[in-house]
């Protein structure tokens, strides 16, 4: 089992001096994920917070080979790199025993919305790469527009709360399930507050034979509107309320990695962030009720899938 002390002494593949916000969740996620493999790594990064903040011209915060691709095609880019690696290996231009790992990275905008088609295609073709989506529920880099990962009732700049609107009126797209439907070897959902779990999942993803997908909850004090020092407590709350269940699907078999002893009401999650503040007005009570129902339904569905998967 990995120890933090050992991880801390590994070389940083993402270094200081990046321009991400105070209390941002992205570096916490990649600090762990980038340590889950010791092989050389090539990263294709879709436009988004991570890309913009780490590569402000003329600087870069990356210590590994890193390619900026457009918003929509990080998965295609990394698939192309992987295909070339295989071709060069076949020609003997890369030694047969040299291992290189490939990582595609995007936020929820670049993955759920704009990059979905490229991602779907790349995993369908079976390229051997890992794709990590850091999901902060919103287009944070461009000022907080709604994405298809924005939850029901959250206020976003293109779905604002006000007298005519209760925030976003649609629910979230379930991307992890879409990826499971591609029948790839490994799909998992993780969160930075359980680093050991995140580390194990990243390791499994890098070792998977075929494409692997990780969906990681990403804290965003800027758009979620909370005290930036409380981020990790929030991630814990997301898992305890089952708003963000931690699970993995290995070759089609579901396993829940964290079951809260006592499932907390979703109200606690909503109270903790400014983006849900308007929901506590009388006329919006139905939304809170609906959110709770949706979370309960999804959790029930997930536990059933895990139960079926545990049968021989």
């Amino acid at each position: 089992m990995a120890k933090l002390k050992d991880l801390a002494q590994m070389e940083d593949r993402l270094v200081a001096g990046h321009g991400m916000c105070l209390g941002c969740g992205i570096p916490l996620i990649f600090k762990i994920i980038l340590r889950a493999t010791e092989d050389p790594l090539i990263i294709a990064n879709a436009t988004g917070c991570l890309e913009v903040c780490t590569t402000i011209f003329p600087r870069t915060a990356w210590n590994v080979s890193w390619i900026h691709s457009a918003f929509e095609n990080a998965a295609s880019t990394i698939a192309g790199v992987e295909a070339m690696y295989k071709a060069l290996k076949n020609k003997g231009k890369i030694p047969a025993d040299k291992k290189i790992k490939f990582l595609g990275v995007g936020g929820d905008g670049g993955t759920y919305d704009i990059g979905l088609q490229a991602l779907s295609g790349a995993v369908e073709r079976g390229h051997e790469f890992v794709y990590v989506c850091y999901d902060n529920n919103v287009y944070a880099n461009t000022g907080g527009q709604r994405s298809s990962a924005t939850p029901l009732g959250a206020s976003a700049t293109t779905a604002p709360s006000g007298s005519k609107s209760p925030g976003k009126i649609q629910g979230r797209k379930d991307l992890a399930q879409i990826m499971v439907a591609h029948k790839i070897p490994y799909v998992a959902q993780a969160s930075p507050h359980r680093w050991q779990d995140l580390y194990n999942k990243a390791k499994k993803a890098f070792e998977a034979v075929g494409p692997a997908f990780l969906n990681v909850l990403c804290l965003c004090p800027t758009e979620w509107k909370y005290d930036e020092s409380k981020g990790i407590k929030l991630a814990q709350l997301a898992a305890d309320t089952c708003v963000w269940p931690l699970y993995e699907v290995e070759n089609g078999r579901y396993k829940i990695n964290y079951k809260p002893k006592q499932k907390k009401p979703v109200l606690e999650w909503l109270e903790s962030q400014g983006r849900f503040r308007h929901l506590f007005k009388e006329e919006n009570a139905w939304i809170i009720e609906k959110i709770q129902q949706d979370v309960d339904r999804d959790w029930e569905w997930l536990t059933r899938l895990a139960e079926i998967s545990s049968r021989p």
Partner: peptide, 13 residues
């Protein structure tokens, strides 16, 4: 290309 990997360390956040 940026061939100076990790040169963001000169940006003192």
């Amino acid at each position: 290309l940026n061939l100076q990997a990790g040169n963001s360390v000169s940006n003192l956040t």
